[in-house]
C-alpha cells in the first residue's frame, strides 16, 4: 500500500510541454462543442501539469490503484481541463476527445465519477470537494496509507460555508495528508470574486483555521512546482493549501485580453485561431 515514494511516472517531456498539451487538448474539446469552460482550463493548465506530472503518485493504466494519490475535482465545470490532463497522462484515450460533451460520451460537460476513469467524485454542486477530501484523508490514515488527497477548488467555493466547516475539520483531525488547491482566478458567475463576496485575505484565513498556507502565481510553473514540493515537505500535522493566482485564458493572448467572464465566449471561427496562436508558443 505504501508506495508513495514512487514519483509520478518518469518522462523526459517537460512540464511546460505538458501544460501546453493540456491547453491544446482543451481547445480541441472546446472546438468540438463550440463552447466550454475554456478560460478556466487555460488558466489551470500549469497547476494540472504539475499535479499529474510532478507531484502525484499514480498509475495511468490503473486509475483505481489503491496506492494512488487522490485528485478530487470539486469544480465539476472544470471537467474539460481534467479530461485534457487525463488524456495527457494516458488515463483516458485521446481518441475520445472528439466525443466531449456529446450524447453517450464518457466526458460530460460537468464532471461525473460514474462516467469517467480518473474522475474521483461528482463535483459541480460547488463546495463538496473539501469535505469529501477530509473523509478520504481520514480513511487513508486509518488504512496506514501515505497517499495524499488533493482537492482542486475555486475562489467561488470559498463563499460556501461547507468549505470552512471542512477546513476547520481538516486541521482539528490533523489531516497532513490533505493538500487543497485553490484556483484564485478572481472570477465567478456574476463577476469578480473579490467584488462579490471577497474571501481575502485568503492565506491568513486558512492559517487561522490551522492550515499551512502558500500563495503563488499559478501560471509560473517553477513557482507552482516549488509550492507543491513545499506543501508535501511540511513535517508537522497541518493540512496544506496552495492558493494559485491564475489568469483566465492564459496562453491565448487575444482571449486573455477579452472582457473576461465566467463563460468566455469564443466564436465558431476563433477556435482554430486560438489553436494557431497557441502553436506559436509551443515549447520544446
Amino acid at each position: 500500500m505504501n508506495e508513495q515514494s514512487h514519483p509520478a511516472p518518469a518522462s523526459n517531456v517537460s512540464l511546460e510541454r505538458r501544460a501546453w498539451n493540456i491547453r491544446r487538448k482543451a481547445l480541441l474539446m472546446g472546438e468540438v462543442q463550440g463552447q466550454g469552460y475554456i478560460g478556466q482550463a487555460l488558466g489551470i493548465a500549469d497547476v494540472l501539469a504539475a499535479s499529474y506530472f510532478h507531484a502525484m503518485t499514480h498509475r495511468p493504466a490503473d486509475p483505481e490503484w489503491e496506492g494512488r494519490d487522490r485528485f478530487l475535482l470539486s469544480i465539476g465545470h472544470y471537467a474539460i481541463a481534467l479530461y485534457a490532463v487525463l488524456m495527457e497522462a494516458g488515463i483516458l484515450p485521446e481518441e475520445e476527445l472528439e466525443t466531449y460533451g456529446m450524447d453517450d460520451s464518457r466526458m460530460p460537460m460537468s464532471g461525473m465519477a460514474s462516467y469517467t476513469p480518473g474522475m474521483e467524485i461528482t463535483g459541480g454542486s460547488l463546495g463538496h470537494g473539501l469535505g469529501i477530501a477530509v473523509g478520504m484523508a481520514m480513511g487513508l490514515k486509518r488504512k496506514n496509507s501515505d497517499a495524499f488527497v488533493y482537492n482542486l477548488m475555486s475562489d467561488g467555493e470559498l463563499g460556501e460555508g461547507s468549505t470552512w466547516e471542512a477546513a476547520m475539520s481538516a486541521s482539528h483531525h490533523k489531516l497532513n495528508n490533505l493538500i487543497c488547491l485553490v484556483d484564485f482566478n478572481d472570477q465567478q458567475a456574476d463577476g469578480k470574486s473579490t467584488e462579490m463576496l471577497s474571501a481575502e485575505p485568503v492565506v491568513p484565513k486558512f492559517e487561522a483555521f490551522g492550515w499551512h498556507a502558500q500563495r503563488v502565481n499559478g501560471n509560473d510553473l517553477a513557482a507552482v512546482v516549488a509550492a507543491f514540493d513545499a506543501a508535501r515537505a511540511v513535517t508537522d500535522d497541518r493540512p496544506r493549501v496552495i492558493v494559485f493566482d491564475t489568469t483566465m485564458c492564459k496562453g491565448v493572448p487575444f482571449l486573455e485580453q477579452r472582457d473576461i467572464t465566467h463563460f468566455v465566449r469564443v466564436e465558431a471561427d476563433e477556435w482554430s485561431k486560438a489553436l494557431a496562436v497557441l502553436e506559436e508558443g509551443k515549447p520544446a
Partner: peptide, 28 residues
C-alpha cells in the same frame, strides 16, 4: 477494501457516429 458501492460504469460507451452527435445544451 475497495470502494465500489456506487455503480461505476465507465466502460467505453457506444460512440455515436459524428453526424448524429448532439451537443449538450449547457445552462440554456
Amino acid at each position: 477494501m475497495t470502494h465500489n458501492s456506487h455503480a461505476r460504469r465507465y466502460e467505453p460507451r457506444k460512440v455515436t457516429p459524428k453526424e448524429d452527435r448532439v451537443a449538450t445544451s449547457a445552462m440554456i
